[in-house]
Design a protein around this nucleic acid. Structure first.
Length: 591
RNA sequence: GGUCCCGUAGUUCAAUGGAUAGAAUAGAAGUUUCCUAAACUUUAGAUGCAAGUUCGAUUCUUGCCGGGACUACCA
């Protein structure tokens, strides 16, 4: 149990008895003591001033005295400043914590609780390569899943591949028209990029065709409807749905190209899935949901045959759930898929890692699922995250302002190589070792950059300035880990010896930070927010860095101090490695 | 028009209603005979505007200004 959770009931009990009031642990506000004051944790007293009818200063003195009396082994001293009771935890508590757990590889890990969760993330379209926005999605989804696993849950990672529809037909049409049979192999390009180029080409050609039609006298609206290439794509979608063999073969071929490209990227960034669903296989599931909804009078049919749901009572709109031609719309497919997955996995909660532009969509989705009485409907959770933008605004495929994922990674690797060569600290590394190190640093920098920000918030990526390996970055934390490993290679802590008596400030700050790790993991899991863990890892590394500069480990003042610092180093190394692993970031032995 | 989100140092990000609003980076000044200087230390710099609730507001409420998303028989 964490120290904060341990002292809370003690304090609540002391207050309750002393003032004859019912105060529970949940009523207490306990913060880390600000560095400019003396203390480890601070109780905020203002909340009790009114009900107990005493001044904050007096309250603080009385509670502080009682705590020292009640738990002399736990509280060393206290001081009261304004409405804050600053508590100093006894050194012996911190030393016991360190000496019993300094080599615990499972620190922060909870036992399995049998609760099942699903995280659906990544979910790409198979008509273009992944970009920076997809990377945020992939890193967030993967990390949240791993954090929840460490928090004791059983987690399934899934992916829905948006592999059919008009957007897929667009790249197919362009390929048919202009490729002359070219393939990724014949052009030496990566499959997803190859197909993506034709998707872009489609847009360019359509723009020209529309312009020509407008020139010949058509209105903009009509021109957009009548552009020949668009009509071809629409016809192709109809053909695809009717099972046309040629179209289906082309579709299979081009999707296979894209998947071969995705596989390379996924492997490199570490994304993995327990199950991948394909829209081409699930898009008909919505039909059953529609019948169901009509039978339950949740949906209603208009004269033209289209099916709707009225959500105005819930503050939303009327939404169409099936077109008049009987085909399913996107949201209905989602309902069908949700139902199927519930039957397959039976998770109490399903996280959809999808950008916040779809907030409305998921509000509607959950409402419909609930009204239909689909099991697990209440567990539908939109893990909404903000989009990644450039300093110039939103990334747009058509305007070529998209930051490609593969290019991005490559550039980070180049910077990692350049910096590493400049520093010249790993000249004895083999080619393979260097390559691995560059990847670790490059992806560490990229993942940390995207994960350190609160997922809910939009973030700006500046290509010129965002690639940094100094300060609040992944490579800084990796560097601290390498330093720790360098010490531990020379000498590791000894199991038997008991270490330390008093704690110096830098030692204590570090140990307090270490003790918080399980609490941070738990919080990151319940709030599904990896940035809490990223910030924590940085603060821990920073605390170690200051400690390292101020005190020598291997040539400590005494054998006892050396043992203490070796243990501090070892536990810090473990927590950094474990914490970063939950973000999908590896840490090197040397760098 | 309607619904929702966001405005914090030059820049990118923090801050369960609590102490003098924290970091990083860019700026200024230092630190290496000593476990890896991708480091450490010091310094300067910010809550869009106006009211309200509160002992206390970056946080809650309202208005204004500025930015964004959604509001398709698209996915």
């Amino acid at each position: 149990m964490s120290i904060v959770n341990r002292i809370k009931p003690i304090i609540a009990d002391v207050i309750s008895r002393q003032y004859n009031q019912t105060v529970t642990a949940a009523d207490l506000t306990i913060n880390s003591t600000k560095p400019e004051f003396t203390g480890d944790y601070t109780l905020v007293l203002f909340a009790f001033v009114k009900s107990l009818k005493k001044s904050p200063e007096q309250l603080g003195q009385e509670i502080g005295d009682s705590l020292l009396k009640a738990e002399p082994a736990l509280f060393a001293s206290y001081n009261v400043i304004k409405g804050f009771l600053n508590l100093v935890i006894a050194d012996q508590f911190w030393l016991d914590f360190l000496n019993t757990g300094y080599d615990n590889q499972d620190f922060g890990k909870k036992p399995a609780d049998g609760r099942k969760k699903m995280v659906e993330y990544s979910s790409p379209n198979t008509n273009k390569p992944l970009h920076l926005g997809h990377l945020r999605n992939n890193f967030l989804g993967w990390s949240v899943a791993e954090i929840m696993k460490t928090n004791g849950h059983t987690v399934y990672k899934t992916c829905i591949s948006n592999d059919r529809g008009i957007h897929i037909c667009k790249s197919m049409v362009a390929w048919l028209r202009y490729a002359n049979g070219a393939t990724p192999a014949s052009t030496g390009s990566k499959g997803d990029h190859f197909v993506g180029d034709y998707y872009v080409m489609f847009g360019n050609v359509m723009k020209k065709e529309i312009a020509a039609l407008i020139e010949s006298g058509l209105s903009k609206e009509d021109a957009e409807k009548q552009a020949p290439i668009m009509k071809e794509a629409q016809q192709m979608l109809v053909d695809w749905e009717s099972g046309d063999e040629a179209v289906n073969n082309l579709w299979k071929t081009m999707n296979a190209w894209v998947y071969s490209g995705f596989e390379i990227t996924y492997k490199r960034i570490g994304s993995d899935f327990d199950k991948t669903y394909y829209e081409s296989q699930t898009y008909l599931l919505g039909k059953k949901a529609v019948e169901d909804g009509l039978a339950k009078n949740v949906f209603y049919k208009k004269e033209d045959g289209s099916v709707w749901i009225d959500l105005t009572a819930d503050g939303l709109d009327e939404k169409v759930v099936q077109r008049k031609d009987g085909t399913a719309v996107y949201i209905t497919q989602d309902i069908g898929l949700a139902e199927q997955r519930e039957q397959e996995f039976g998770c109490e909660q399903t996280f959809y890692v999808v950008a916040d532009e779809q907030n409305y969509h998921f509000k509607v989705l959950k409402l419909i699922a609930e009204k239909l009485g689909i099991p697990g409907a209440s567990g539908i959770t939109h893990m909404s995250y903000g989009m990644v933008e450039l300093p110039t605004g939103r990334m747009k495929t058509r305007e070529g302002t998209v930051v490609d994922a593969d290019d991005m990674i490559e550039e980070m690797v180049n910077v990692a190589r350049q910096k590493t060569e400049e520093l010249g600290k790993v000249k004895d590394f083999s080619e393979a070792e260097l390559k691995e190190l560059y990847d670790i640093i490059a992806l560490g920098a990229l993942k940390f950059f995207l994960l350190r920000v609160d997922p809910k918030k939009r973030m700006i990526f500046n290509p010129e300035e965002s690639i940094d390996f100094h300060g609040f970055t992944g490579p800084f934390i990796q560097f601290i880990h390498a330093r720790i490993k360098s010490i531990l290679r020379k000498e590791a802590p000894v199991k038997s010896a008991d270490a330390g008596s008093g704690l110096l400030p830098a030692e204590k700050s570090l140990i307090i930070k270490l003790e918080q790790y399980p609490t941070v993991v738990e919080q990151a899991a319940t709030e599904y927010n990896p940035s809490l863990l990223a910030i924590y890892c940085y603060e821990l590394a920073k605390a170690y860095s200051s400690f390292y500069t101020e005190h020598s480990v291997l040539t400590a003042e005494s054998a006892e101090k050396k043992q203490l610092r070796l243990r501090l180093s070892q536990l810090t190394g473990i927590v950094i490695a474990k914490g970063m692993a939950l973000l999908g970031i590896k840490v090197p032995e040397r760098m």
